[in-house]
Amino acid sequence: MGAKELLFRTREFALNVIQILDKLPDSIGNKTIKNQLVRSATGMAANYRASTKSRSLKEFTARLGVVIEEADESWFWLDLLEVLNPKLSEISLLKSEAFQLTAIFTSSVKTIKRNACEKAPNNS
């Protein structure tokens, strides 16, 4: 999957989260979760965008680490939101997307690290 598609997916994820949060009432639980979720979802999109402007592989990998944390955190808040709002079926789709994005970015970091190890000089 290319950078352009991931830029689109992370942006769409953030927008979809915002749209679903606008549908929810401002109960105490929802309000707290809405605050955290909007930050993690938009943070994921913004940090992925920033990663595409990285000046080095090390900086790129570090940014992806933040993206993974934000995507996983988004999944967590969506899970809580789903428990509090079981009739809102769109939440499960967003949870699935958060899980998929976490997996994609985790796989990318693992590949980068594996390739770095393979290119490292043998010190034996």
Rank of each mutant, 00 (worst) to 15 (best):
V109K: 02
G29N: 15
A120Y: 11
L57H: 13
A41Q: 01
L88Q: 13
K87T: 14
N122H: 10
N85H: 01
S107C: 08
N30P: 08
F8H: 15
G2F: 12
A116R: 14
A50H: 03
N35C: 11
L80I: 12
L84P: 04
S51A: 07
N16H: 07
N47T: 01
S124E: 14
P86C: 05
K34N: 03
K4S: 07
G29D: 11
S89R: 12
V67F: 02
D72Q: 13
D22P: 08
A71D: 03
E97L: 06
L7M: 02
L64D: 07
L37G: 04
P121H: 03
P86R: 02
L21F: 11
V109Y: 07
V38K: 15
R39E: 00
S124C: 10
N115P: 06
K4V: 08
E90Q: 13
L88R: 10
T102W: 01
L93N: 14
K113Q: 09
A14Q: 06
S74P: 04
Q19M: 11
S74W: 00
E12M: 09
E97G: 07
E97M: 08
T42L: 12
T10Q: 04
E59S: 00
S92N: 10
L84Y: 09
K23Q: 08
L57K: 14
K110A: 08
C117H: 14
N30H: 04
T42W: 12
P121V: 02
R9N: 03
S56E: 01
I28P: 09
K95Y: 01
I28A: 13
I112M: 07
